[in-house]
Design a protein around this nucleic acid. Sequence first.
DNA 1: CGACGCATTGATTGGATTCAACTAAGGTGG
DNA 2: CCACCTTAGTTGAATCCAATCAATGCGTCG
Lengths: 243, 243
Amino acid sequence: MTGTALVTKLQTFADLSDSEITRLNHLCRNVRTVAKHQTIISQGDRPDHIHLISSGWAARYITMRDGSRQIVAFLVPGDFCDLHVSLLGEMDHTIETLTACHVCFIPGAEMDSLTSEESNLTKALWWGTLVDEAVLRSWVANVGRRDAHERIAHLLCEMHLRLKLVGLVSDGRLDLPVTQVDLADALGLTAVHTNRMLQRLRAEHLITFNRGILTLLDIDRLREVAGFDGRYLHVQRRRASSG
Amino acid sequence: MTGTALVTKLQTFADLSDSEITRLNHLCRNVRTVAKHQTIISQGDRPDHIHLISSGWAARYITMRDGSRQIVAFLVPGDFCDLHVSLLGEMDHTIETLTACHVCFIPGAEMDSLTSEESNLTKALWWGTLVDEAVLRSWVANVGRRDAHERIAHLLCEMHLRLKLVGLVSDGRLDLPVTQVDLADALGLTAVHTNRMLQRLRAEHLITFNRGILTLLDIDRLREVAGFDGRYLHVQRRRASSG
DNA sequence: CGACGCATTGATTGGATTCAACTAAGGTGG
DNA sequence: CCACCTTAGTTGAATCCAATCAATGCGTCG
């Protein structure tokens, strides 16, 4: 079921009926495999399809004048790339896979009819985009006001909780298939400094991070370091747990 | 007309009929004056009204553990404070006035009925929130990847263009009723450094900034300094001009 | 006037960048 | 199976941008 992650995610917000779940899965029937480091959509594009990450990781980023980039979101299974482009006109940023991905291609027209027929689902979808926005606010604060040590810790706490929502964490272990360069681009740091701070977190016995596998050794203490309060992810319902 | 700024803003995206404009103005009939430096909504609140800035300025900010704050948005006339809270449950941040404001209080139920009856208006409203999100992405990049000089320049370019949209700019002059401390809190800098960079922009004959009045002396050059590309504001239509 | 908020200036410190080299791991092909 | 190449991660030294600390000016307002 290629819509599984999406269903799991939306269920943290709303009760979904069987028919609604079926409809979501139907929506996601057209899946393509996208290789690692491929562009899903570019700045300036006006795609007629909506893209949903079904498996794998991608990054949303803005390219700066000097060629450097700022990652403004990590996209994980269940996340939409561009639920909104039709309203905005064209993409103002680029989305690229970090790993091989399964991406659902959803015709814009089909999404339109869904939103006009299924008000419960539509609400759940909008909830998702509002959470994305809350995450973005949190990122501004993260980059603007935390030092490198806290900042990395905060990102790791966030990814841990977000992946937990879609059932991709077990016992503090999760896939984080991103390089230190990617992390740096998301944190507004250099790769070198990111490396040193990761080492520090390891030395403090807070994390393990090898070959894309992250383990949080002491979640409470890591959250303490980060000043992490997960409420901005708005997952206080149903099957989500705060830990 | 307390909904004027909103109407002006939405018209950059969509054609609005007279009846739609009337409806928007009707929506905004309940206006209260909020004094300077008052909280409109606090983190944790679950307001049953939606708030719209009709005149004046406010800031959306996140409070950090150490008491410092990160402003994640400046709200100007035509901006909603919390179009979404009902979906998210509770506020994950605080909104405070920077000047005395006129704030429209819109009953949540009334907005609900509008969105179910007026699909054109609803689209326009969602366009607004999607632009807010695009601005947020741009802020992450601003704070994450630009140095202080570029960063301030970029914020000034953005505010200039945004205010132009609601008709609050004339000849490069605009009200920017924020202190250097406020600017610093939005830019992820200290007030001291913000002060020095403002002085530098003045010395470069790019701006004038006195008592809350900002003048852009050479918009093209300021945009060049900032690396500003206003497309992320998605105003390429109708009455918006890119300058 | 005195107090306060805001802007300004100087001296110093420090966190993060930069530059550069080097190691380790993986993949590929001869 | 090893030589070669590439990518990712690590380390060190020097530098720099912005933070910090501290003091002062200045205008407004009670």
